[in-house]
Measured scan of single mutants.
Amino acid sequence: RVIAMPSVRKYAREKGVDIRLVQGTGKNGRVLKEDIDAWLA
């Protein structure tokens, strides 16, 4: 299970990103909004 705040999950869904593919850089591997942006870049 991916650790991410609900707002980040929603952001990823809106961008069409599968959050399971994104490498989290936050505490304990948490996926941050910046990680979604970096994955899209």
Rank of each mutant, 00 (worst) to 15 (best):
V17L: 06
Y11C: 05
G26D: 03
I3Q: 07
V22G: 01
L40T: 06
L40F: 08
I19K: 00
K15L: 15
L21W: 10
Q23R: 13
Q23P: 15
K27R: 15
T25E: 02
V31L: 06
T25I: 02
T25S: 11
S7I: 09
A12K: 00
S7A: 09
N28W: 14
P6F: 04
A12S: 06
R1F: 04
G26R: 03
G29E: 06
W39L: 08
D18V: 05
R13W: 15
P6K: 14
V22S: 01
G29A: 07
D37F: 03
R20Y: 09
P6G: 09
I3L: 05
A12P: 03
W39I: 08
R13V: 13
R13N: 09
V31Y: 02
I3D: 11
R20H: 13
R1W: 03
I3Y: 03
A4K: 04
Q23E: 13
V2R: 08
K15E: 06
L32D: 05
R30L: 13
R1D: 12
D18W: 04
V31I: 14
A41W: 10
I3E: 10
V31Q: 02
E34P: 08
N28P: 02
K15Y: 07
G26Q: 02
K33M: 13
I19W: 06
D37G: 03
G29R: 07
V2Q: 09
R13T: 15
Q23G: 09
W39P: 01
V8P: 02
I19G: 01
Y11G: 04
V8L: 05
T25Q: 05
A38F: 14
V8D: 04
V17Y: 01
V8W: 02
G29D: 06
P6L: 09
V22H: 01
R13D: 14
G26K: 03
R13F: 12
Q23Y: 12
V22W: 02
I36F: 00
G16F: 07
V31D: 00
T25C: 04
L32P: 00
Q23A: 11
K33D: 04
L40A: 07
P6S: 12
V2K: 08
D37E: 06
I36D: 00
K33W: 07
T25D: 02
K27F: 11
P6D: 13
D18A: 06
G29N: 11
V8M: 04
K27M: 13
L32T: 14
R9K: 15
G16S: 06
R20F: 11
D18H: 05
A4T: 08
R9V: 12
R30N: 08
E14A: 15
L32Y: 07
W39D: 02
A41E: 15
R1A: 11
K10L: 11
D35A: 01
D35F: 00
G16N: 10
I36T: 00
I36W: 00
E14N: 11
K27V: 14
K27C: 09
E14V: 10
L21C: 08
A4Q: 05
D35Q: 01
W39H: 10
R13I: 13
L21S: 09
E34Q: 15
N28V: 06
D37M: 05
R20T: 14
I36L: 04
I19Q: 01
G16L: 07
V31R: 03
L21R: 12
V31P: 03
V8S: 04
K33T: 07
Y11R: 06
E14Y: 09
V31A: 03
I19D: 01
G16P: 01
G24K: 03
K33V: 10
V22Y: 01
V17A: 04
Q23F: 11
I3V: 10
M5L: 14
D18T: 05
R30V: 09
Y11T: 06
A38M: 13
R1T: 15
A38G: 09
L21A: 12
A4P: 05
S7Q: 10
R30A: 14
V2Y: 03
R30F: 08
D37Q: 05
V2N: 10
V22M: 06
